[in-house]
Nucleic acid binder design. Structure first.
Lengths: 229, 229
DNA sequence: GACAAGCAGATTGTCGACAATCTAACAAGA
DNA sequence: TCTTGTTAGATTGTCGACAATCTGCTTGTC
C-alpha cells in the first residue's frame, strides 16, 4: 500500500467554529478593543446556545485576545503602547532564537515554502487586500518558527501572532491608507536563503523595527484618546 | 484619607476553583500523563455540574497541560524527551532576556523579595516537602520575570512554568528519592545581587542545565516504556 | 475461525431554564 | 446636595436533560 499521510479531519464541534469566527472578528478589528461580548446576543446571532459560546470564549481568554471579569463580562483586550512594545521586544528575541534553530535545517522544501508564502504576500498586496496582507506577512514570518522544530516555541509564537495581527489590523484600520506597494520582504527572504545567519538575525530585528515605529505612534494616539475620558 | 491600595478580591466562581484544583492535581502528578478526565465522574466528585467543569478544562487545554480530542475526551498531556528539551531550550533564551530587562530595575525591594523566596525554598527543603520545594524554586526563578516589566514575557513564562513544574513533579515522583539538601540556589541569588549581568545570565543557563540532564534521562525512560506497548 | 454489520452502553457536545450577581435608576434621610 | 438603601432589569454563572458520537461487544454469515 502506498504510504499516504492524511491530515487530521476538521473539528466538527460548534465550539471550534465559534472560536474561529470570534478570533477572526477580533483579529481583523471588527470587534474593537475594550468592547464587551454579550453572550446572549452573540449566541442568538450565531444560532447557538450559550454553552459552546462560553467555552469558546474561555479559550480565547486563555489565548490572550479576550479578558474576563467574573459576573461583569468578557471583553476584547485593550491595546496600550506598552503592550506593543512588550510584544515586539519579546518577538525580537524569539526571532533570533527561531532563526538559529531553523538555520541548520533549511532545505529545498524550506526555500520552496518561503517563496510560496512570499508570493502570497505579494499577491495580497497587489489585490490591496489589507487584512489578507497582514495575515500572509505573518505567515511568511512564521515559517522560521514552524521550521525550528520546537513545539513550545511554536506555541509561543502563535500566541504572540494573535496580538501582532490585531495590532496591525487596528493600525491599518486607523490610518486607512493604501498599503505600501513596495516589497518590504525581499531582503528578508534573500537573507534566509543566504549563508550569513547573523545577518539574517540582524535584519529580522531591524525589519520588524520599521513598522514598529508607526504602530507605536498609533498606540500612543489610542492612549491619548483614552485619557481624555 | 490614607491611600491604601487594595488587591482585587478573589474570583468566586466555581470555574476558577475547579481550574485551581485540576491544575494542582496535574502539576503535582496526581493525575498522570495521558490519563483521561471523565467529566461525569469528576463533576460528581466535585459536586459541580459539567458546565463549569468543561469551561475549566477548556482553560487548561489552552494553558497547555491538557489536550482535547472532540467526542473522544480530554487528557493530561504526554511528556516526551523532546518536549522537555524544547521547553528548556526556550527557557534558557527567555532567562537571558528576563535578566537583561530586570537588571537595571533591581532595587532594595527586589533584593528583599529575592531573599524571601530563597528562604521559602530552603524551608521547603528542610521540611522535605518535595512538591512545595518545586513550587518555591520556580517562584524564586520567576522573580526575574515579574521584575522584567514585560507582560507578554511574564505570560509566556507562566505557561512554561506549568510544564516545568509538571516535569519536575513527575521526575521526583519517579525516582522517589530524598531531595538534595544542599542549597543549589545560593550562587544564583548571589549573582543576581552582584554587578556582572553576563555572569548571572551564564549561570542561569548552566544552573538550569544541571537538573536538566536528570530530567531528560527520566523522559527517555518514559519513552522507552511507551514504545514497549 | 475470520470478518463485517449492527446494536447497546458510555461519554462528550449542546440546549433551554433557573440562580446568583451586577448595574443603574430612584427614593429617603442627614 | 450628598450619601445611603432599595429595587428592577439585564447579564453572567450553573444546572439537569437531551442529542450526537464513539467504543466494544454480539450476532450472523461465509
Amino acid at each position: 500500500m502506498a504510504k499516504l499521510d492524511f491530515s487530521p479531519i476538521a473539528d466538527t464541534t460548534r465550539r471550534a467554529e465559534i472560536v474561529a469566527l470570534l478570533r477572526r472578528a477580533i483579529l481583523t478589528g471588527q470587534l474593537e478593543p475594550g468592547q464587551k461580548l454579550n453572550e446572549l446576543r452573540i449566541s442568538e446571532q450565531m444560532r447557538v446556545s450559550r454553552a459552546p459560546l462560553r467555552e469558546a470564549m474561555r479559550e480565547l481568554v486563555q489565548e490572550g485576545v479576550l479578558t474576563s471579569i467574573p459576573y461583569a463580562g468578557t471583553f476584547v483586550i485593550e491595546v496600550t503602547a506598552k503592550d506593543i512594545i512588550d510584544a515586539y521586544s519579546l518577538n525580537q528575541v524569539l526571532d533570533e532564537f527561531a532563526i538559529e534553530k531553523t538555520w541548520p535545517q533549511r532545505d529545498q522544501r524550506f526555500f520552496d515554502e518561503l517563496d510560496r508564502r512570499h508570493e502570497a504576500v505579494k499577491q495580497a498586496t497587489r489585490a490591496k487586500d489589507t487584512t489578507r496582507q497582514i495575515e500572509t506577512a505573518l505567515q511568511l514570518h512564521g515559517l522560521i518558527y514552524e521550521w525550528a522544530d520546537n513545539s513550545v516555541l511554536l506555541e509561543t509564537w502563535q500566541r504572540l501572532t494573535s496580538r501582532l495581527q490585531m495590532y496591525f489590523a487596528l493600525h491599518q484600520r486607523a490610518r486607512n491608507e493604501p498599503v505600501p506597494a513596495e516589497d518590504v520582504h525581499e531582503t528578508y527572504v534573500a537573507l534566509l536563503k543566504g549563508a550569513d545567519m547573523r545577518a539574517a538575525q540582524r535584519h529580522a530585528r531591524q525589519h520588524i523595527g520599521l513598522d514598529f515605529e508607526e504602530l507605536l505612534a498609533y498606540a500612543r494616539g489610542l492612549e491619548k484618546r483614552a485619557s481624555k475620558n
